[in-house]
Nucleic acid binder design. Structure first.
Ligand SMILES: [Mn+2]
Ligand SMILES: [Mn+2]
Ligand SMILES: [Mn+2]
Ligand SMILES: [Mn+2]
Lengths: 218, 218
DNA sequence: AATAATATTTAGGCGAACCTAAAAATAAAC
DNA sequence: GTTTATTTTTAGGTTCGCCTAAATATTATT
């Protein structure tokens, strides 16, 4: 079955919302796809027809198995293209999202397969998010937020939640990127700020707001 | 001004039709964009509004200067992506057209600029067609059809008009690709067939139908 | 020049994806 | 358990890109 770019965006959004919330409502989805609730209702009825979503009026809804599969496929494309843009074309990671948002709808499976090979089958995108393989399988890594790490133990940065240019700017200032090894020296109760140490760099202090966006492998 | 994928396709088609015919009519355009004449009329009115086409009801039409510029931009994107698909992802040239037909509508100028650099600013696509630069300038090469070449003189293959897999198949069989050096030994009046010689290969005979699709630099 | 053949435009309609405003259902507050 | 507030759906409308059928303009033929 064929899906329009719009349908793919809705499906992908539902998937992401399900990752973060127990229940997904029409309002949340409207917010996420940047549209109005009335439009969401229209789309939900269409997606239900196509059996990609389990939906009953006024109830919360979920993706069906096929819906899940489609979401993973779009996410795979999105993240592979992001990887390409950063790794091959030299974009910074705060520049790639919008472009990948368009590229993810190119509908050639063989293109994606070849792109994947060309990039040496990366398992994670430039933001540290996992790239599903061609069967929709995701490599799960045990990771924890910087705020939850054991003190004085060395960890490796694995993902950044906030992907804005402001965040990138800040991370560059601190010399932090994916793969950076660091340890948390201490945590201040007062504001939740963290004192961190990176090899060959002076000790630095991160606000809790920043720390909450940084994840490390366990 | 923003242009939809559909508008871009129409504009590009008009450009290509203008390359081959003195006059471009609604019927020709309908055929080229695979739609009905009534739809072409609708679109022509819209494109006229946007000042990309010089159009008056029942008359033949032409692209305006802006129309031309847009066409060259889309063609640039199309051919750069084709080059990428063949050169980097290893596609054959009969496989890339449909994918490029989608990719050409991705709307990030910086993406195309970076792609161009990444590919080392190629001047020709995998079919030998010129790639406009970022100002819309095309590198024109003097070329002639195989059927018009001087006999017993060596030329270099520069472009193939028919881009079907059947043609690729045939060319591969004869060991012909872009850049291949060859000379025409003789031409048979009866059917227009050509006897050609390629270094280190036995003499081969090409039908006029094939020869008409092959161009060489002068 | 009149008529026949062909090309093009208009008229009216359809599906997709969006919108606003009003109605209806659910959830929260009293 | 009502009443109120919030969420969701329905109703009706818009734009885009397409369609068929009918009307009209252009071009070709006699
Ligand atoms: Mn998207
Ligand atoms: Mn990402
Ligand atoms: Mn196209
Ligand atoms: Mn080409």
């Amino acid at each position: 079955m064929k899906y329009s770019a719009s349908e793919e965006n809705y499906i992908k959004c539902i998937y992401h919302l399900q990752e973060q919330h127990e229940q997904v409502s029409a309002g949340m989805l409207a917010e996420a796809v940047q549209t109005k609730a009335a439009s969401v209702t229209d789309m939900l009825k269409k997606l239900q027809q196509k059996k990609t979503v389990n939906y009953r009026p006024y109830q919360n809804f979920t993706l069906t198995e096929t819906g899940n599969r489609i979401a993973l496929d779009v996410i795979r494309k999105h993240r592979l293209w992001e990887f390409f843009l950063v790794d091959k074309l030299g974009f910074r990671w705060d520049e790639v999202h919008d472009i990948a948002e368009e590229l993810e709808h190119i509908s050639s499976p063989v293109l994606i397969q070849r792109l994947d090979n060309y990039l040496n089958n990366p398992a994670f995108d430039p933001h540290g998010d996992p790239i599903p393989d061609n069967r929709g399988k995701i490599k799960i890594i045990r990771q924890a937020n910087l705020t939850e790490l054991n003190l004085k133990q060395t960890y490796s940065v694995s993902a950044i939640k906030d992907q804005s240019s402001q965040m990138l700017d800040l991370l560059q200032h601190y010399g932090i990127q994916l793969g950076t090894k660091l340890k948390v020296q201490r945590r201040f109760e007062f504001d939740g700020s963290l004192e961190i140490k990176i090899d060959k760099q002076p000790v630095a202090t991160l606000s809790e707001q920043v720390a909450k966006n940084i994840y490390c492998t366990l």
